[in-house]
Design a binder for these strands. Structure first.
Length: 286
DNA sequence: GCAAGCCTGACC
DNA sequence: GGTCAGGCTTGC
């Protein structure tokens, strides 16, 4: 599941391979992954130079140059659940679920977009469009200040878990790192977001940063499909302490990890280390 | 049948 | 506006 660390890993891998190269051709195998008109997508990308990359949360923008002029337009990539961006030789066998190929000049091979579940999307964006998308996201989880974090929690009635997953609050966390950060901060996932104390908010932000930074350093988590642009899995999997560990002993206290459903998403936590809040949770597991 | 990110739409 | 359910999708 690509979350912030996985998208950051893709960005870092793509940078040396794509920046400074020209896209000489675009082949759309499955138009379902393209937002907008596929023909105009092709037209806007073909012949363009890749100027640089930019990320906010899980959104990746590949900035484009035309005739030496930067217009601020870009290719926006959202990987969804199973999206993969890989750079391969042009003659590499076409793997299943390859939906788009973008050929790079000077023998740099091609960028391929693969996605078995097709939740991910590629979209050509003008400067205005990409700004609008980025503005709709909360602060990037690694850039957020403690004040922003506390202010944003204030007055929120849903659970802290749902809040962490809400990309308009902070951008970059998905189910894996949300569960891991809550465990690290010893906060019960059903704690009402607005009821978190300053102390808990501080601990949670530190936990979010720590988990994400470590995951970036280890090139992400490959739970099922995620690979980097060279096709390599991430190395964070052995670091997981609660995600998908239902019934296993907590690494801190030995209690059995529990799984409950919050907002239709599974939440894994230690019932002893992460105490249920005194206040009745607003959100009940369905 | 479950998992997930993101979008839409319904509800208060 | 805040909040949540539903739908998309397919491999396990």
């Amino acid at each position: 599941m690509p979350e912030l660390p996985e998208v950051e890993t893709v960005l870092r891998g793509l940078e040396p391979r794509a920046v400074g190269r020209r896209i000489t051709g675009v082949e759309i195998i499955n138009r379902g992954v393209i937002i907008g008109d596929p023909v105009s997508f092709q037209k806007h990308l073909t012949g363009r130079l890749v100027a640089g990359l930019r990320r906010k949360g899980k959104a990746l923008a590949i900035n484009l140059v035309a005739n030496g002029a930067i217009h601020g337009d870009c290719l926006l990539v959202r990987l969804g659940m199973t999206g993969q961006v890989v750079v391969t030789r042009r003659d590499a066998p076409l793997l299943p679920h390859t939906h788009v190929r973008m050929i790079l000049n000077r023998g740099a091979g091609e960028i391929r977009y693969r996605d078995s579940r097709r939740f991910g999307r590629l979209r050509y964006c003008t400067r205005e469009e990409v700004e609008k998308v980025f503005e709709s996201l909360g602060p990037d989880a690694l850039e957020m200040t403690e004040k922003q974090f506390r202010d944003s929690l204030h007055g929120r009635h849903g659970s802290i878990k749902a809040w962490l997953l809400n990309q308009q609050m902070l951008a970059g966390l998905g189910n894996i790192y949300a569960d891991e950060a809550l465990f690290e901060a010893r906060i019960h996932p059903q704690t009402p977001a607005g009821k978190a104390t300053d102390r808990q908010a501080g601990a949670l932000l530190r936990a979010v940063r720590q988990v994400l930074r470590q995951a970036v350093a280890l090139q992400g988590t490959s739970f099922r499909d995620y690979v980097d642009i060279e096709g390599r899995p991430g190395n964070f999997l052995p670091q997981l302490r609660v995600y998908q560990k239902t019934g296993e002993p907590c690494v801190r206290c030995g209690a059995a990890i529990r799984r409950i459903i919050i907002c239709g998403r599974s939440s894994h936590f230690c019932p002893r280390c992460q105490r249920r809040p005194r206040h009745r949770p607003v959100q009940i597991a369905s």
